[in-house]
Every structure is written in structure tokens, then in C-alpha cells.
Deep mutational scan, measured.
Amino acid sequence: VTLFVALYDYEARTEDDLSAHKGEKFQILNSSEGDWWEARSLTTGETGYIPSNYVAPV
């Protein structure tokens, strides 16, 4: 399991995006899409895309 933590708040801009709150942890499901990674929030269980530069490894 690849875990990352949000460094900043991010507000989803499309229905495919996933909002993130600073300190929230995510499981990365797919990081092969360049700057946008598919992730699952460990807080809400929701999945979507987050900007890779907004997260760091735990």
C-alpha cells in the first residue's frame, strides 16, 4: 500500500477530482497518469484524482 499525506488543501474542480484537506492520508491507486494521481481517501473512502504535487509520502 502506497500512502501519501496532503500537504495543502485542494478543492475538487471536476467530478473526477477528489478534494483533500491538509494532513489527510491517501492510498495511491494509480500514479501513471502524470501530474494527477488516482487516490482513495483513508478518511472518507472516496476515490478520485488529486494533484501529485499536493501530497508527499508518509
Rank of each mutant, 00 (worst) to 15 (best):
P51A: 05
Y10V: 06
K22G: 03
L3G: 02
L3H: 08
F4E: 00
N30L: 07
E15Y: 09
T14F: 14
T2C: 15
Y8T: 06
G23N: 04
H21S: 12
E46Y: 09
S52L: 05
A12M: 04
V55D: 00
G48V: 04
A12I: 03
E11A: 10
A6Y: 03
E11R: 09
L7N: 02
S31L: 10
G48R: 02
I28Q: 01
V55Y: 02
G45C: 10
P57A: 09
T47G: 02
K22T: 08
A20S: 05
Y10N: 00
P51G: 04
T14S: 14
N30E: 06
S19Y: 06
Y8V: 07
L7F: 03
E46F: 11
L18S: 01
Y49G: 03
I50R: 00
Y54P: 00
V58W: 14
N53M: 12
S31Q: 13
L29C: 08
V58G: 03
G48H: 02
I50M: 04
P57H: 05
I28F: 03
D35M: 11
T14W: 12
G48C: 07
Y54I: 15
D35Q: 10
V58F: 12
D16F: 15
Q27K: 06
V58K: 02
G23C: 08
Q27Y: 14
E15D: 12
K22I: 11
A6K: 00
P51T: 03
Y10A: 02
L42G: 02
Y8N: 05
L29V: 07
E15A: 13
P51R: 08
A39T: 01
T43A: 11
G23E: 03
V5C: 09
W36T: 07
Y8K: 07
I50N: 01
D9N: 08
T43G: 06
E46S: 10
T44Y: 03
E33P: 10
T43H: 10
Y49R: 14
Y8M: 10
G45I: 04
G48A: 02
S31E: 09
V55W: 03
R40Y: 09
S19D: 08
N30V: 08
V5G: 01
T43L: 12
V58A: 09
L42E: 07
L18T: 02
R40E: 04
Y10K: 00
D17S: 12
K25C: 14
A39F: 14
F4S: 02
S31C: 15
G34R: 12
D35F: 13
L18G: 01
E24C: 06
K25N: 06
Q27G: 02
A20H: 04
D35K: 08
S31F: 15
A20N: 01
E24W: 05
R40G: 02
E24N: 03
Y54K: 07
I50A: 02
L7G: 01
V1L: 13
L18E: 00
G23I: 01
L7P: 01
L7D: 00
D17T: 13
L3F: 12
E24I: 03
F26C: 03
H21Q: 11
S31I: 11
T2Y: 12
E11K: 11
K22E: 07
R40A: 04
I50S: 02
F26P: 00
N30D: 11
G48E: 01
K25T: 12
I28H: 00
L18C: 05
D16I: 13
A39M: 14
W37A: 03
S32A: 11
T2V: 13
T43C: 14
A12Y: 02
T44C: 03
W37P: 01
A6C: 10
V1S: 12
